[in-house]
Simulated scan of single mutants.
Amino acid sequence: MKLYCYLFCIFLFASQKTLVAQYHFSGYVDTQHWSGDIYLSLIEDYRKLSGVYPEQIIQKTTSDSLGYFSFSGDNLPSENRMYRIHMENCSEDEKDAIHFNGFCPDSKEILFIANNHDSLTLPFSFDKEMFCKIVSNNQKSDAFIKVDSIIHEMRFAFASYRSETNRKLNVKKWFSTLQQYVQNQDEPLTELYIYAFLSDKANNLYAYYLEDLNTNPYYDQLLQRLQTKYPNNIYTNRYKAELASDKFLINSGENTPKNYWLWALFIVLISSIAINILQFSQARARNKIAKDLSKNLTQQEQKVLNFILEDKTNKEIASSMFVSISTIKTHINNLYKKLNVRSREEVKSLYINK
C-alpha cells in the first residue's frame, strides 16, 4: 500500500511540474572561459538568426558553480519556432557600443527548433566544447546543426579550388543537396534556415540564388509548405514578401536591355524632337491667329503693335508717333481687346517666330 502511495505522489508531483513548466531547456557552459548571463531568444525574423538582438530575448539566467543552467516555463508558442541560446563575455559598459548592429565578437550561441512542450539539453561535446550538441524529445531541434555540417562541407569544396569555373560547377550541386536535405526533414523552418543563407545579399552565392530562383520551382513549393504548416505566421509572410521582391528584381533585370544607355539616349532624342515639333506647331498656330486678328487693327494700332514688339515704352511710342501718352494708352487698350490679350507679354507671345 505504501508503495502505491509513493508512486502516486511521484506521479502527482511530476504532473504538477509538467503543468507549471511545460518546456525545459538546460545545458552546461565552460565556466573557465565564459561567465555572466545566459540568454534565451525567440527568433521571429529569420534575417537575424545569428547575433545579439535585445528585442528577441525572452529569458535570462546564470549558471551555477558547475556551469549548469536551465530555462523553463509555459509561455512559448505551441508550434515549432526558431530559438537561440547565447552568452557573451562583454561587460555591461561595453554591450551597447559593441552590440549596436547585433554582432558580438566574443559570444557563443546555438540555434535550435523547439516548442512549448519540449525538453532539451545542451551537454558538452566529446571534446568538452559547449553549445555543439543537442539532446531533445523534438526530432527537429538539432536540424540546424546538421545543416551547418553540410554548409561546412560546401565551403571546404569551394575553398579547395577558388576559380570561377569550379564555383559554377559546384554551386548547382550544393544548392540541390541542401534543398533536398532540408525538404526531407519535413520542417519548413529548416528550409527557411537554408533560404536565409543562400539568399543573403552579402553572400557570394546571392547571384546564383537569383539564377536558381528564376528556374527552380522549389521556392514556390516552399511557400506552399509554409502556408500549409504556418499560415499567417510572421515567417511565412516575410518569406512571401521577399520571394515576390526577388522575382520582380529578376523580371525587371530581364526586361532591361544590356545596351540600356543607348535606349535611354534614343528616348531623350525622340522626346526632344517631339517637344520641338510641338512648340513649332503651337507657334504657327499662334502666328495664324495673330495674323487674322491683325486684320482688324487700324493703321495707328498696327504702328503701336510694331513698337510694342520692339520693346518700346509708352513714352517712346508717343514721341515717335507725335501724340500724347494718353492717346497711346487708348490705342493699346483697343489693341488688347482686338487681340484678346491683357499684357504686352501676351501680345509678344502671339507673334513669336512670326
Rank of each mutant, 00 (worst) to 15 (best):
2 K>P: 03
7 L>W: 05
7 L>C: 11
9 C>I: 04
11 F>I: 14
12 L>R: 15
14 A>T: 11
15 S>I: 09
16 Q>W: 11
22 Q>H: 15
26 S>Y: 03
33 H>D: 12
35 S>Y: 01
37 D>V: 02
38 I>K: 02
40 L>D: 07
41 S>Y: 04
41 S>K: 01
42 L>V: 09
46 Y>T: 00
49 L>K: 06
50 S>Y: 12
53 Y>K: 10
54 P>A: 04
55 E>S: 12
60 K>R: 13
62 T>E: 06
62 T>D: 05
64 D>W: 03
64 D>Q: 01
67 G>M: 07
67 G>T: 09
71 F>T: 12
77 P>F: 06
84 R>D: 10
88 E>N: 14
97 A>V: 05
99 H>M: 06
100 F>E: 12
105 P>F: 13
112 F>C: 13
112 F>D: 00
114 A>S: 06
117 H>I: 08
117 H>A: 14
120 L>N: 00
121 T>W: 01
124 F>G: 04
126 F>A: 14
130 M>Q: 12
132 C>H: 14
134 I>H: 03
136 S>H: 05
136 S>R: 11
137 N>G: 13
140 K>Q: 13
149 S>A: 11
149 S>P: 00
152 H>R: 09
155 R>A: 07
156 F>R: 15
157 A>H: 06
157 A>K: 05
163 S>V: 07
166 N>S: 14
168 K>I: 10
170 N>C: 08
171 V>P: 00
172 K>S: 02
177 T>H: 02
178 L>T: 02
179 Q>G: 02
180 Q>C: 09
184 N>A: 15
185 Q>T: 13
189 L>W: 02
193 Y>A: 00
194 I>G: 07
195 Y>S: 09
198 L>V: 08
203 N>M: 07
203 N>R: 01
203 N>L: 06
206 Y>H: 15
206 Y>F: 15
207 A>W: 04
208 Y>S: 15
209 Y>S: 02
209 Y>T: 03
209 Y>D: 02
210 L>N: 08
213 L>N: 08
213 L>S: 07
222 L>W: 10
222 L>Y: 08
222 L>I: 10
222 L>P: 01
229 K>D: 01
231 P>I: 06
235 Y>G: 04
236 T>N: 04
239 Y>L: 01
241 A>P: 00
241 A>Q: 08
243 L>Q: 08
243 L>H: 14
243 L>P: 06
244 A>F: 06
245 S>V: 10
249 L>C: 00
255 N>P: 02
256 T>E: 07
257 P>G: 04
258 K>F: 11
259 N>D: 06
262 L>M: 11
264 A>K: 15
269 L>A: 14
272 S>Q: 10
276 N>Q: 14
277 I>S: 12
278 L>P: 00
279 Q>D: 13
283 A>H: 10
284 R>S: 13
285 A>N: 11
288 K>P: 05
289 I>L: 15
289 I>M: 13
293 L>A: 12
297 L>W: 08
298 T>E: 10
300 Q>V: 03
300 Q>Y: 04
304 V>S: 05
305 L>R: 00
307 F>D: 01
308 I>H: 03
310 E>Q: 15
310 E>N: 15
315 K>F: 05
318 A>W: 07
319 S>P: 03
320 S>C: 08
321 M>R: 12
323 V>S: 14
323 V>P: 09
324 S>Q: 06
326 S>P: 03
329 K>Q: 12
331 H>D: 06
332 I>W: 03
334 N>Q: 05
337 K>T: 12
346 E>V: 09
346 E>A: 14
351 Y>Q: 02
352 I>L: 14
